[in-house]
Write a protein that binds this DNA or RNA. Structure first.
Length: 103
DNA sequence: GTGATGACGGAAA
DNA sequence: CTTTCCGCCATCA
């Protein structure tokens, strides 16, 4: 088991902070939490262990889920539009910062 | 200082 | 449309 990363760093806090900022019914991509290091964002969420962090609202940039059905169920409960099988988020509609109409 | 890993992203086939 | 491969950045041993 790799030891938990240091969540005290500013970078890690920034990631967790943005994750908490995502409102229910919307989702965000790892690249949104940290555009320069999406992998790092995932590592932090996995190690955060903080129930105040809505990790289930964080999906891949293409809308695919990282935690399978566990995540899909939570998102569906918030009214997030899921589609296909395996279920993936309709990012076009649920992405947090992107409420703009793609036209 | 070097090597290896990861809840990823984007491009190519 | 799905699947595969490479590349990125930060952190850990």
């Amino acid at each position: 088991m790799r030891r938990p990363p240091d969540l005290t760093t500013d970078r890690a806090r920034a990631v967790l902070g943005r994750a908490r900022a995502v409102p229910a019914g919307h989702v965000a991509a790892y690249s949104d939490l940290d555009p320069a290091a999406p992998r790092f964002a995932g590592t932090i969420l996995s190690a955060s262990g903080d129930p105040s962090v809505p990790w289930h609202r964080i999906v891949r940039s293409d809308g695919s889920l990282t935690q399978g059905e566990r995540q899909a169920k939570l998102l569906a409960a918030e009214g997030v539009a899921l589609t296909g099988d395996p279920p993936r988020v309709d990012v076009r509609l649920a992405r947090w910062w992107s409420d703009v109409d793609p036209a």
